[in-house]
Amino acid sequence: MSLTAAFYIVLSAIITNNYVLSKFLGICPFLGVSKKLDNAMGMSVAVIIVMVVATAVTWPIQTYLLDPNGIGYMQTIVFILVIAALVQMIEIFLKKYIPALHKALGIYLPLITTNCAVLGVCVLNIDNEYNFLQSILNSFGSGVGFTVAMFLFAGVRSKIETNDYPEAFKGIASTLVAASITSLCFLGFSGMLEKIFGM
């Protein structure tokens, strides 16, 4: 795989196919944990780590375990259990060996099990028939894309948090409208990567 192709996968997962803003994956943490920049970044880093590790584990399982035995349909069950176990293990690992990181990310890890972006990226890697390296790159790009969305949105949230909203739009409703406007600006980049990388 050429370097440009690798860049293409990562950048398109960040910009044009942003998981949060164009594929609607990981909306819950996007809306829930974006109030403060610190929390948003902690969550994002945790998501990047889990996404990459989960892909590194689930891709071989699918390719070397499920598919050869004709039980590809067990994907969903196996993946979700693997991810749940993985998150637990990462948490134990961090607690034991990198307590500082565990302190920073610990509270976000359990929330990630039910983050559909993680399961989504694992399934989509298989669906898109990516090879192992491509899958890892795609997962990393998706995680970074999630981070970018969180970063942008955390800024917006900090600005509009104490606004004087109309009664009906208090809370989640106005947050969604803000997300709508935020996702608009990502549309402007469509076609850009194809042109840059000559895809």
Partner: peptide
Amino acid sequence: MAPGGFFVFGCLIA
């Protein structure tokens, strides 16, 4: 498109 989804959802919640 994506922005429309967020917007309609927000409006329904409102």
